[in-house]
């Protein structure tokens, strides 16, 4: 079990990964940064989100990029996780991203009309 032990040691020496919430961060924003997302404008969205969080000094929010979520057609996709509750937004641009930070994260009310829907 030498290798497994080696892997455990590596794992323990690591930082908390960006996709887990911990004591400091209770909210997480994931932006789909696969090529599909980027092609649809995800880079601007990610930058806007970070800018907006910095402006508002929201330190409890972690931002991370992730790969393709699968629904390329609806890119850019942004997923917000607040206290374990996940919400995915579709077709996000910079303006929408700013509003989501304000409404969903600051005011605590998701913008349902932009949430990815069943159709």
């Amino acid at each position: 079990m030498k290798s497994l032990a080696g892997l455990r040691a590596i794992r323990e020496s690591m930082h908390q990964p960006s996709n887990r919430l911990n004591n400091e961060t209770t909210t997480r924003i994931m932006v789909g940064m696969g090529t599909c997302g980027i092609a649809a404008g995800a880079r601007t969205v990610l930058l806007t989100v970070m800018e907006e969080l910095a402006t508002r000094n929201l330190q409890h929010v972690a931002v991370a990029q992730t790969g393709c979520m699968g629904m390329c057609e609806k890119e850019p996709l942004v997923e917000i996780e607040v206290d374990g509750q996940k919400t995915t937004y579709a077709y996000i641009n910079a303006d929408k991203a700013r509003k989501i930070v304000l409404e969903h994260i600051v005011n605590g009310s998701p913008i349902t009309e932009w949430v990815v829907t069943k159709s």
């Binding site: 090529t35 599909c36 092609a39 649809a40 393709c68 390329c72 057609e73 890119e75």
Partner: peptide
Amino acid sequence: LGICGVAPA
């Protein structure tokens, strides 16, 4: 180009 998910690209 392999970005058909967001076609036309």
